[in-house]
Amino acid sequence: MTDSSINTAKTQLRGAYSESIHFVGRIWTGLAILILITIPAAFCIYYQVIPDGGAIAQGLLSVAVIYLPIGAIEAITFGPILGGGASYLAFITGNLTNLKIPCAINALEQAHVESGSEEADILSTLSVAASSLTTNIIIILGVLLLIPLTPILQSPVLAPAFANVIPALFGALGYMFISRNWKLAVLPLIFIIVLFILLPVSIASSISGGLIPVTVLITIAGARFLYKKKLV
């Protein structure tokens, strides 16, 4: 087989996998949205409840204004990190920044595979699927054992430990990434530290979750500068 025919075969294989994963991903995402909508609808029908329209409108006004754009921006930011299959799966099963994305990053790191390749797409999907199943099992067990587990998980020793899962996770991930490419981290770290020190604390606290895309754009701008100067 010639090099060109091998390349053509590879492209066809990649195309077939990508096409099919987007097709099934869309179907499963549609099903998930349907199930999601069914939950409040089923509650209303079963208990013959008419929801409070005013409360819904006010709630949507205060929450949707922030979270609808954040949801779309998260999809734009995390899509290239996760790849096709893992994106559909992670956006259906949730817990993105606190679990699925670090899990996929860790999996690719262990496999020494870079994001963006088809191999990375496949391994990310395996990682997110394994993670979703594990969380599902742990939550089911937790729901079944809720009464005996509650005092243990809320004990004075374990409660502070579990309150610090996110700092522990990002401390370790921070070392993993910054040690590999510290130049990329300088600009976003300065930006975040200055912003969080100077902003009034109530504003800093309320915008911190939605700040990821801004920091990403600043990091990309810094990376572009370093790239043009041949410093990375």
Binding site: T77, F78, P80, I81, T97, I101, I105, S115, I166, F170, G171, L173, G174, F177, I178, N181, L184, A185, P188, L189, F191, I192, I193, L195, F196, S208, L211, I212, P213, T215, V216, L217, I218, T219, I220, G222, A223
Partner: peptide
């Protein structure tokens, strides 16, 4: 940079 931007936000 996408990875790094996300991680730096949480580090702050």
């Amino acid at each position: 940079s996408m990875f790094m931007g996300m991680i730096c936000t949480f580090l702050g």
